[in-house]
Design a protein around this nucleic acid. Structure first.
Length: 120
DNA sequence: CTCGTGACTCCCC
DNA sequence: AGGGGAGCCACGA
């Protein structure tokens, strides 16, 4: 059987984040069974830049509720603009209320998305 | 197989 | 609040 890559699972999960909601890198890693894989998720998002996929990457922020894109001010601005267009509000320091906007699906729902991504 | 990289996090000061 | 440092991971060369 063909094992689907970690990145693909990340993308599958991100594609399910509801409009106006967000998820943190660490949370995604945890959902995929890798409690300390936050950086790996960030790497997956970064890799997305070199591909043209329709993944709502802008709905992924760091645990502090802040845009985490580095080395690309324009990219960060774009992410903020996209989120604001979905109704997300940022404070004067560039933070959004992570506790309020976080998407918290049930374990069953997460499991379903993962199985679906694996084509089962 | 080893090594460097990076859109992360937690902990301490 | 904000910055420094160590731990952690998948991917590609």
């Amino acid at each position: 059987m063909t094992e689907i890559s970690f990145n693909e699972l990340v993308y599958a999960l991100v594609e399910h984040i509801p409009y106006g909601k967000v998820l943190s890198y660490g949370r995604i890693a945890q959902m995929l069974g890798v409690p300390h894989g936050a950086r790996a998720v960030g790497w997956a998002m970064h890799a997305l830049v070199y591909q043209n996929r329709r993944v709502p990457w802008h709905r992924v922020v760091n645990s502090k509720g802040r845009i985490s894109i580095k080395g690309s001010p324009e990219g960060a601005a774009a992410q903020r603009a996209l989120l604001e267009s979905e109704g997300v509000v940022f404070d004067d320091k560039g933070y959004l209320d992570i506790a309020y906007y976080i998407w918290d699906p049930s374990p069953v729902e997460i499991e379903k998305i993962i199985r679906e991504a694996r084509g089962e």
